[in-house]
């Protein structure tokens, strides 16, 4: 017992202990299940607004619509966990969209897909190297990559949509068909989320990525090569962004350099709604997935309810703030 009281005078330890002792206090519960609660409330709200919402068709549509943002959110989650940010995902998606439309014309499908992923990974590697090894600020470097990759997509496509014609049929077949009742892009997103879940929770890589976001110096002084891990998350983010772009081409049959304009903002919003902290170290895969779905449901409800597009943006802004306030209620409403 005396040991239990031992930490009491130390403020940091005390509050943590108090929180632990109280058990599932509101703020703790919210941190764990808050995103889910918001999601359920939104679904309930939506089903009262429109009969069309709780239909299988709408649900599969929603999953397909969000597959691009969802896949990019996985990469963004890893980046944000290390206390970084990746603004280039939308542009790399455009590059992925354009190059996939080009590559399918004279490569086999697997080769084309691999090359597209490799290009995205290469973009991420450039950012990652500059950020991790030269210690340049992620915001600025990925901002530069955002401009650069978009420009590259425009150059490669001559500013025109790239039409792969019949050679793109295989890709388009994949993008538009269903497997076991779900659209293929949705399956792809779900399986990538599953893989990310395993990596983040059970692998050396996942644990160290989180640890680096919490206290990089302590990880470095534990003998771990921090820069490799930091660079890797940008490679992952770039590769996944290219996959998201490829999916757009697969669905539409056209590779456009206009794909994913401002997508990075949706992606960051989804990750943040999912409870990840931009200060690094905090965030998880399941909640990120729910964050993506929340973002999708919000748009979906408002479309069904006939809310005009401009109004939608205002509501979205408000909802992001509300989500973040609730997630940080522990800090905000203490004392």
């Amino acid at each position: 017992m005396s040991d239990r009281t031992a930490g009491i005078g130390e403020p940091a330890a005390t509050e943590e202990k108090a929180a632990n002792r109280k058990g599932p206090g509101f703020s703790r519960l919210f941190r764990t299940y808050g995103t889910l609660t918001i999601f359920i409330l939104l679904v309930l709200l939506a089903s009262t607004q429109s009969d069309a919402f709780l239909t299988e068709r709408n649900a599969t549509n929603l999953l397909r619509q969000m597959s691009g943002v969802g896949i990019m959110a996985i990469g963004m989650l890893f980046v944000i966990l290390t206390r970084g940010i990746d603004l280039s995902v939308g542009s790399i998606a455009a590059l992925g969209a354009v190059t996939s439309a080009m590559f399918v014309q004279d490569m086999s499908m697997p080769m084309a897909v691999a090359s597209v992923v490799l290009i995205g990974a290469a973009c991420g590697a450039v950012s990652g190297f500059l950020i991790a090894f030269l210690r340049l600020p992620a915001f600025v470097i990925t901002l530069a990559m955002m401009t650069g990759a978009r420009g590259l997509a425009l150059i490669l496509s001559n500013g025109q949509p790239v039409m792969p014609g019949t050679s793109g049929q295989g890709l388009q077949n994949f993008g538009t068909s269903f497997t076991l009742g779900l659209p293929n892009p949705a399956w792809l997103m779900l399986s990538l989320f599953a893989i990310a879940f395993l990596i983040l929770n059970f692998s050396r890589f996942g644990r160290l990525v989180k640890a680096i976001g919490s206290n990089e110096e302590a990880v470095r002084l534990s003998g771990i090569s921090v820069p490799w891990y930091v660079a890797s998350v940008y490679v992952i983010s770039g590769a996944l962004a290219a996959v998201a772009g490829l999916l757009v081409t697969a669905r539409s049959g056209v590779g456009s350099a206009q794909v994913g304009v401002a997508a990075e903002l949706d992606v960051i919003a989804a990750v943040v709604i999912g409870g990840a902290s931009l200060m690094g170290g905090r965030g998880d895969v399941v909640n990120t997935f729910i964050g993506v779905m929340i973002l999708g449901v919000i748009g979906n409800i408002m479309n069904l309810a006939g809310v005009p597009g401009y109004h939608q943006q205002v509501y979205l802004g408000v909802i992001i703030v509300v989500a973040v306030v609730l997630q940080n209620s522990a800090q905000l409403f203490r004392r």
Binding site: R207, A211, S214, N215, E217, A218, L221, G281, R282
Partner: peptide, 13 residues
């Protein structure tokens, strides 16, 4: 706190 441990991470980890 700054260099020895990752405060928010589990004791085991």
């Amino acid at each position: 706190k700054g260099q020895g441990i990752v405060l928010d991470m589990g004791i085991n980890k």
